[in-house]
Design a protein around this nucleic acid. Structure first.
Lengths: 150, 150
DNA sequence: TATTGTTATACTCTATAACTATA
DNA sequence: TATAGTTATAGAGTATAACAATA
């Protein structure tokens, strides 16, 4: 090899470039609503379902129990979620949205929708479909199902 | 709207899902060489060019001066870069690769190449081209040129 | 006064592991 | 012993701002 490949030679570089821009913009807009991207994913995961154990959330969100605990602490402090004891197992408990949390989800979803439009409406419909299809191929191949936070 | 859009409804979600997987795998492999993704980008930016001022690096890498200072401190400690005074301006100085740093870059580039193959060779050539083209459209539209770190 | 660069502070996310309480 | 969850620690990234030295 004559010279080591440069940063832009890799698809992953371009992927991160666009992904980070979208995520950072999303994070900035969510910040005005007082939540982070991780908190949005957490709240959305709780929306429309019954009380969930932290361990289940850790599994579906691809985070450790410790990370879920910290996130839950913040959301409890913001009174967007609430904790309840599990009567069957005194070690365990469940998390669910408060009324304020339930009200918040559609507001946050609207922000996510706005980001989608702002960033991806420059693509022709066929292009956006192609992007989604290619990303699905890559995700499926790796068995990715966790919720991306960064 | 009947129900707030779900996490997977947004292209940005799928973008982060794949981008994070690639980056985290890349970070894990770089870790064995004792560097982070940010350090790789830093080192590659210094490769093949003359001594560079931290402020210039901050600009090209899209990081603050403070972040560049911290990165530079780590790379100095690892003896992969060196600092030199600027004789024309006593406030300023420049950064450049040490011999060890120059030797390291091709090794790290090979890791980046391996990641490229591992993740993206599942795509047909036309698909990979389409992905690169679509990402370019999105990056150009936003004037993105910074080096993505996450 | 403005600029170069360092340093300090603070916050998010990540990972590991020690720990408590209960099973 | 094993499991549910919390808490502690540490590292990497982000951002803002105070600061020293020099222009």
């Amino acid at each position: 090899m004559l010279s080591p490949s440069h940063l832009g030679a890799h698809t992953g570089y371009h992927l991160r470039l666009v992904s980070n821009a979208v995520s950072q913009d999303f994070a900035r807009r969510l910040e005005r609503e007082g939540v982070t991207v991780a908190e949005w994913a957490f709240l959305r995961s709780l929306y429309g379902v019954g009380p969930i154990a932290p361990s289940v959330l850790a599994e579906t969100m691809g985070m450790t129990k410790g990370a879920i605990s910290k996130l839950a602490d913040r959301l409890l402090a913001k009174e967007l979620i609430e904790r309840a004891d599990n009567p069957d197992d005194k070690r365990a408990h469940t998390l669910s949205l408060t009324e304020a949390g339930r009200d918040k989800v559609p507001v946050l979803a609207a922000i996510a929708d706005a980001i989608e439009t702002d960033y991806f409406s420059v693509l022709a419909p066929g292009e956006r479909d192609a992007l989604r299809r290619i990303l699905s191929i890559l995700a499926d191949r790796r068995g990715l199902s966790n919720i991306p936070i960064n």
